[in-house]
Amino acid sequence: MQVTIRDLTKVYRGGVRAANGINLTIPTGMFGLLGPNGAGKTTLMRMLAGILRPTSGSIQVGGYDGTTEAGRRQIKKTLGYLPQELGMYPDLSAREFLDYVGILKGMDDRKQRQQRVEELLRMVALSEVAGRKLKTYSGGMKRRVGIAQALLNDPKLLIVDEPTAGLDPEERIRFRNLLSELGGDRIVLLSTHIVEDIAQTCQNLAVMKAGRVIFQGTVTEMLQETRGKVWTLAVPGGAKPEGNFTVVSMLNMGASVQYRVVGEPLPGQQATPAEPSLEDGYVWLMREQGPNSAHVLAS
């Protein structure tokens, strides 16, 4: 299956253009959607999930047209969606909530539905507390309920919006691994502004900024774009170096401070080329695609 998005635009009331002619092809497997807050990632996901209607453009999920009511109905049958802020009824237990979601997802056979609920509760390690009311759950536990509800119907398209936001490091790793396992035979669209999450899980990614896709390709291609633009600078005394670059990190070494920068250091500065990371690539793209830039790297 493949998701094809063409010239997708969403203009909210008041004229806010949250998505501005997005073109994107999403193949099977894990696909990362990266971008700063306000880039339009959530708007794009909500359009894919059928919550928002696009102003113009087309969405094709498999053989279904996501801009028509009939197409949306078909897409919903194969969809799992984990929003940034998961809605749940606080007075239901996790088991009850999942059962209810199963019903709404069209899983009519009670026995099969209950088996699937128990299977997913085991998978997200919530079996022991499945009878407790959701309002007593921690943020991490609620996220796990969220992924369980998204997986109930064994979706072919799984959309997860900022799934690791607010999780502690251990929970984050656990969650990332879980998503990676799921990405084998379905499309998992992972939206985040945490670069590390994409670096650890996705082969393909797109970067969004101001409602547009400014890069689409593989992680390797993105790193290739950034090669030769990442440097380390050791500055004695720690005075902040100047130049046409962005400081990605700084490490205090005692007598000097080591800066990692993306851009072009001044000729006199003793800069050493460094191997780019995905974070460097992201910073480079954000620099290049400034508010006035017309250059789009999307392939």
Binding site: K76, L79, V101, L104, G106
Partner: peptide, 8 residues
């Protein structure tokens, strides 16, 4: 919002 993404 969540239920809107489901087929019911």
């Amino acid at each position: 919002e969540l239920f809107t993404t489901m087929p019911t």
